[in-house]
């Protein structure tokens, strides 16, 4: 698994994958989808898909894939090695969403929530695998949000595929377990080897797992806070953990499109005589924000 392409610009997003096994182009395949790093306040979220021919499901079972959450990091790395060894019939693809992309998407003018972002990323990955010539027939997905709605959405996009969205799919279907291992391995590596474009000075890089309740993560968040900039782009600004700290410890910032904090105008104010009787400058100057300076 080569993360170099993502690491070149860890403020964006990046798709990568294994070569497509010839067997997956030749016969109907099943495909599993899972994600890693949805909860943490630090680092990227990774979407993973794994696929293999339906005829090879027994061999896949023999690889003994399991839900990545029940495994240690070393066990996951080992199982990823096993998957890599089965490259003649198992393929995978990943989509890494940087924390900066998550923050800016969730906080953009037209809010883009995490579920919608997740769904669109999953849809993009299925399409990517189809475009690569894999004969996907069945899709198994670990749910994000309500399973039924998600299943409907996927079926609308891919009417020709048999889609199963299920909570805990990562422990029920080996192909989803395999996808969860790929995603989690990529997330772990990306977090461990994160290169900060920012210069954080003396802050020690012991940020723990990135989960909001990890004491190491909490301590790191407290240490690297800058009153003006807040955090480096490694932190998801849209997480309530980060927002709460920013609200109490950083200087207030209002962006151009923030709703004005003013209360409702009194009805009388609409009838009040306009304060300035001075001649207003021409619209030309007003539009250009040009004013005559008379004092400081």
């Amino acid at each position: 698994m080569e993360l170099a392409e993502f690491e070149r610009d860890n403020a964006g997003s990046c798709r990568l994958g294994s070569p497509v096994p010839e067997l997956c182009r030749a016969g109907p395949c099943c495909l599993g989808i899972d994600e890693a790093g949805r909860g943490p306040v630090l680092g990227p979220m990774v979407y993973g898909v794994c696929y293999c021919p339906l005829a090879k499901q027994e061999e896949l079972g023999a690889l003994k894939m399991a839900d990545s959450k029940t495994l240690t990091e070393a066990e996951r790395e080992q199982l990823f090695g096993t998957l890599d060894g089965a490259r003649d019939f198992v393929g995978w693809a990943l989509h890494i969403l940087s924390p900066n992309l998550i923050s800016t998407s969730m906080q953009q003018r037209a809010k883009y929530n995490l579920n919608a972002l997740s769904h669109d990323t999953a849809i993009g990955l299925i399409q990517h695998v189809l475009d690569a010539g894999v004969q996907v027939a069945e899709v198994f997905v670990d749910t994000v949000g309500p399973a039924e709605k998600y299943q409907e959405k996927l079926k609308r996009h891919f009417p020709e595929l048999e889609v199963t969205v299920r909570p805990k799919a990562d422990s029920l279907f080996p192909i989803v377990s395999a996808a969860s291992i790929c995603a989690k391995v990529a997330r772990d590596r990306a977090v461990k080897n994160w290169t900060f474009p920012e210069d954080l000075g003396d802050v020690r890089m012991e940020y723990g797992s990135g989960y909001p309740n990890d004491p190491k993560t909490k301590e790191w968040l407290a240490q690297c806070l800058d009153p003006v900039f807040g955090y480096p782009q490694f932190v998801r600004f849209s997480w309530s953990t980060a927002q709460t700290i920013l609200e109490s410890k950083a200087v207030p910032v209002r962006c151009e499109d923030d709703p004005a904090q003013k209360g409702t105008r009194s009805v009388l104010s609409f009838f009040a005589r306009k304060e300035s009787s001075k001649r207003q400058p021409h619209r030309f100057f007003h539009e250009r924000k040009l004013e005559t300076v008379t004092g400081l």
Binding site: D9, A11, S103, Q107, L200, G230, P232, V251, C255
Partner: peptide, 29 residues
């Protein structure tokens, strides 16, 4: 805030030069 800020440490290094425009983020925007 009225005063100095670590622009060169937090902001400038995160600026990306695209083909059309520069991009960066500030407080997650």
């Amino acid at each position: 805030h009225n005063g100095s800020a670590p622009v060169a440490r937090y902001f400038t290094p995160a600026i990306r030069q695209g083909s059309q425009e520069k991009s960066v983020s500030f407080r997650g925007r």
